[in-house]
Simulated scan of single mutants.
Amino acid sequence: MNQVEHFALGGWLVVLAYLTSAVGCTLGLACTLHARHAADTRSRLGWLGLASLSLGGVGIWLMHFVAMLGFETPGLPVRYDVRWTVLSAVLAVAAAFGGLLLFGVGARFSWWRLFASGLVTGGAVNLMHYTGMWALEIKGTIGYDAGLVALSVAIAVVAATAALWFTVAADKPLHRLAAGLVAGVAVTGMHYTGMAAMRVHLDISAPDPSGVEVFSFLFPVFVLAAVALAVPICAVLLAPAPGRRPRDERVAVPQG
C-alpha cells in the first residue's frame, strides 16, 4: 500500500502556499535592500534580522506548513513531531540570516557574494524542507528519490540567486516585487519537487504514529506568522526609502 495524497484540500492550497511564500520573500528582500544601504552595522544587522524572519519564517517555513495541510494518507493518521517542527522553523530563519548576511553585508555589489548567498539561501530552503519532513509521522516508512532531491536543491539555489540579483539590478518597486515572486517560485517549486521525490510505503499493521495533528497547532502558527509579517511591514513602511546607489555600484548591464 503506497497511496498518498498531496493535494487533499484542492488546488487552491497550492495557490495559497505560493502567495504565502511570495509575500514573505518579497518583504524579506525589501528588508535586505534596506540592509544594503544601512548607515551602520547595528542597523544593517537589524534589517537582516527582519529579512530572515520574513524570508525564513514566512516565505520558507510557513509556506511549507501551508502546503503540508494538503498531505494525507487516506484512511490512515498523519502526525507531526512538535520538536522537529519547531527546529525546522529555527533552522529556516537562522540559515536565511546566514545567506542574507553574505549578500547584505555591504552596499557594494559583488558577484562572489551573490553566488555564495544564493547557495546558502537556496540551501536554507532545502534544509528547512527536509528537516521539516523528519517531523512527519505516518503508518509506514518514507524514502526519497536521489535524482529528484538533487533537482529540488538546484531549483532552490538557482531561483534564490536570481531573486537576490533582482534586488540590486533593478531600482523600480515593480522589479523588486518580481524578485519576491521569483523567490516564491524557488520555495514552492522546491517544496513540491521534494514532495514528488518522496517514496512512501504505508503499512496498516504498523503502530499508530505519535505526535500531534497538524490542525491542532494551526492557530498558534498563524498568530506567530502574523507577528513575523507585521513587524517587518511596519519597519519598511516607516523607514525612509533606501538611498540610491552610485552608478558604479550598480550591476553592470551591457549596452546593446
Score class of each variant (00 low, 15 high):
G99H: 04
P173Y: 11
M1G: 09
H175R: 13
W111E: 01
L174K: 08
R199A: 14
P254K: 07
M198V: 13
G24W: 03
P232I: 03
V153M: 08
L100E: 03
L76K: 03
K172P: 01
V212K: 02
V90P: 03
V182Y: 03
R36Q: 15
G46N: 04
D248H: 15
G46Y: 05
Y18S: 06
G147C: 01
G118V: 03
R113P: 05
M63K: 02
R244Y: 13
G143T: 13
F71Y: 14
V4D: 08
F97T: 01
H64R: 08
G99S: 09
A179D: 02
F222N: 11
L33S: 06
A89Y: 01
M68R: 03
A39N: 13
V200S: 05
L13H: 02
P207I: 11
L50H: 00
V253M: 10
G147Y: 05
L114I: 11
G49F: 12
L174I: 13
A162L: 14
W47Y: 07
F166P: 00
A95F: 12
H34P: 08
A38K: 02
R44P: 00
V23I: 15
M68N: 02
H6A: 15
S216M: 11
V23C: 13
V214C: 00
D208A: 14
G118P: 01
P242F: 04
T26A: 15
G104D: 05
T161E: 06
N126L: 13
A170T: 03
V58G: 01
A96P: 14
V23T: 13
N2Q: 12
G10L: 14
P173K: 03
H129Q: 14
V187C: 12
